[in-house]
Simulated assay, not measured.
Amino acid sequence: MSAPERIPQGGVTGPDLLTLLADGELTVRGRIREASNAALVCTVALDGREASCVYKPVAGERPLWDFPDGTLAQREVAAYEVSEALGWGLVPPTVLRDGPYGEGMVQLWIDADPSAELLALIEGEEPGDGWKAIGFAEVGEGRTALLVHADDERLRRLAVLDAVINNGDRKGGHLLPSPDGALYAIDHGVTFNADAKLRTLLWGWAGEPLPADALAALEELAKALAPERRLATRLGELLTPAEVDAIRARVDRLRDSGRHPAPSGQWPAIPWPPM
């Protein structure tokens, strides 16, 4: 028997890759021990093709007081659906399917480029060219440094996506710049709550006007969220009616204001730990 064809990142896209993730045979290879919920590294193989992926079974989710039990996997898939509707491809292909430990989320594995610099700690009070300020952080011995993120179009789009999906946990470790120049974002279980819960490291554009491409993407997303459209129907399968209504309301607020949201001051704006 010949070895399966190994699918490189970006080697298969769209329906072909989703079919592989949804219908392929999952084989568990290991566990990501740093993850707060069960996250298993797997291979998925179908018709002589194979790819690496992450499988997060619903059975391995820890209960959260502010989210219904057993819903984090669905939220990960919903984040992928919204990212695709915006046309930005920021979330790796993600499906909901059965696996060795029951139903769960399966997502294409992304190899991050370790040389890409998206976050930094710098001396002084100004971020400098090419950077946006997040806030000051303690670095030991009573010293502080300015935490900054790159003034990067990909990150700016991600900041818009997070505002739409109401991401309550955008940490630095969730940013995966790939060697081909794309940026992917992972870990979207704590999203889509009907209550405002945006917590993120990407506050550098807070209050600034949204770019024209973001406004155009939000316009198309608003159309896709209309009742009976495919996206609205799919989100209705993954989220509660109140949560779907809240997505529409957030998109409308972003379009009406034309600006990136700012922290409300009513809860911590940055997740902990930030990385």
Rank of each mutant, 00 (worst) to 15 (best):
D98V: 13
D98G: 08
A59V: 09
T94D: 03
L20W: 05
K171Q: 08
L119H: 08
P227V: 08
V12T: 15
A3N: 06
P68N: 11
G99A: 02
G30V: 07
G204H: 04
F192G: 07
L108C: 02
E237M: 12
A120N: 08
P274M: 01
T19Q: 06
A196K: 13
E228V: 15
V190I: 15
P273Q: 06
D195I: 12
A38M: 03
A145W: 04
A206G: 08
Q9C: 13
S36R: 14
P68D: 10
E243S: 15
A22D: 10
D187T: 12
E125L: 13
E123I: 13
N167S: 06
L96S: 10
L64W: 12
D47Y: 07
W65S: 15
S178Y: 12
W131L: 00
Q74L: 11
R199V: 11
G135C: 01
D187K: 05
C42F: 05
L198A: 13
L21P: 05
L239G: 03
D195R: 15
S257K: 15
H260V: 04
P261G: 11
R234P: 13
H174A: 05
A59F: 09
G89I: 10
P211T: 05
W203S: 00
G24E: 08
S115Q: 09
T144E: 03
V160K: 06
T233E: 12
E81D: 06
Y55I: 00
L239T: 03
